[in-house]
C-alpha cells in the first residue's frame, strides 16, 4: 500500500442499501491499521452520512456515491448524494419522539460524525450534498 487506492460504490438512496455501504466500508477500513473500535467508528460515520441522504431523498430516484481513498496515512471517504439541498427531511420512524422533543436529528448526525472521525466537511449545493470524512492512521 505505497500509493493511494480508491474504491467507488454507487447505491440507490434507500434505507435497505445503507447496510451495503456499511459492509463495504467495513472491508475498506480494515485495510487501514485501525483498531476494531476505530473501524466501527468509521462505519458508523458513513452510515450516518448515508442515512441523512436517505432521509432527504424521500421517495425519489436518488443515488449515493461512496468514494473511499486508502493511503498509508489516512482513509478519506466521500459520501455524495444527488438530492438538492433544502429538500424537506422525512422524519425517520424511530426518531419521531426526538423530533417531538425539539431535537434536530440531522444536526445530531453531523455532530456524531465529528465525534467519530478526525475531520468532517459537509458541502451542500443544488446538485446534492457531499460529506467528506477523514480518519488518520495512528502514528
Amino acid at each position: 500500500m505505497s500509493q493511494a487506492d480508491t474504491v467507488e460504490l454507487v447505491i440507490p438512496c434507500r434505507p435497505e442499501y445503507v447496510g451495503v455501504a456499511r459492509l463495504a466500508v467495513l472491508g475498506i477500513a480494515s485495510r487501514m491499521p485501525f483498531s476494531y473500535d476505530e473501524v466501527e467508528d468509521v462505519r458508523l460515520a458513513v452510515g450516518e452520512a448515508c442515512t441523512h441522504a436517505v432521509e432527504r431523498a424521500g421517495s425519489s430516484e436518488a443515488k449515493i456515491k461512496i468514494v473511499s481513498t486508502v493511503d498509508p496515512h489516512s482513509l478519506v471517504i466521500e459520501v455524495t448524494d444527488d438530492v438538492p439541498a433544502g429538500a424537506p427531511v422525512a422524519a425517520p420512524v424511530d426518531d419521531t419522539q426526538l423530533l417531538a422533543d425539539g431535537v434536530d436529528t440531522q444536526g445530531l448526525g453531523a455532530l456524531l460524525m465529528e465525534i467519530l472521525v478526525d475531520e468532517v466537511k459537509i458541502a451542500a449545493g443544488q446538485s446534492g450534498t457531499t460529506v467528506r470524512l477523514t480518519k488518520y492512521a495512528p502514528e
Binding site: 473500535d37 450516518e48 424511530d94 426526538l98 422533543d101 436529528t105 445530531l108 456524531l112
Partner: peptide, 17 residues
C-alpha cells in the same frame, strides 16, 4: 427523564458492536 430518548437514540447507533 426528559432526555432519555436522546440517550436511547445515540446508544442505538452503537448497537451492532
Amino acid at each position: 427523564l426528559m432526555h432519555q430518548n436522546l440517550v436511547r437514540y445515540l446508544a442505538g447507533k452503537f448497537m451492532n458492536r
